[in-house]
């Protein structure tokens, strides 16, 4: 299992950065989910979170689960209040044009596990 910096993940998936967070922080795992309660109930703590949800409540879940980076898939744009909240909370918020599966494949190649 590799430990990969958020900045490296961003480069790999060609992400557009909305909130910087801590780009030097490394993650080892990633989680996928669009059902907020599912992510809340999962062991996504400390993982990169890939989702297509773009509204403010995404930040609330990330804060509670100590998720350092939210990756929004399929080129969707985060709501302005989500961006703002992530900036306040120091959470990286990025968007990538690739669909969820492609992002997972790319992260897997970097050595990130589920």
């Amino acid at each position: 299992m590799a430990s990969v910096r958020i900045s490296e993940i961003c480069a790999e998936i060609g992400a557009r950065v909305y909130s910087e967070g801590d780009m030097a922080r490394a993650v080892e795992r990633a989680a996928v989910g669009d059902l907020l309660s599912f992510v809340m109930g999962s062991d996504a703590d400390g993982a990169a979170w890939i989702t297509v949800q773009t509204h403010l409540n995404v930040a609330a879940v990330a804060v509670l689960k100590d998720i350092p980076v939210i990756i929004i898939a399929s080129g969707r744009e985060p709501a302005a209040d989500l961006t703002e909240r992530c900036q306040t909370e120091g959470i990286a918020l990025v968007s990538a044009a690739h669909p969820v599966f492609d992002i997972c494949v790319k992260l897997g190649r970097l050595g990130i596990s589920g």
Binding site: L35, S37, G41
Partner: peptide
């Protein structure tokens, strides 16, 4: 649509 209402709240 917002990713709630999956019937997981009370079980969680």
């Amino acid at each position: 649509e917002m990713g709630f209402g999956a019937g997981m709240g009370l079980p969680n």
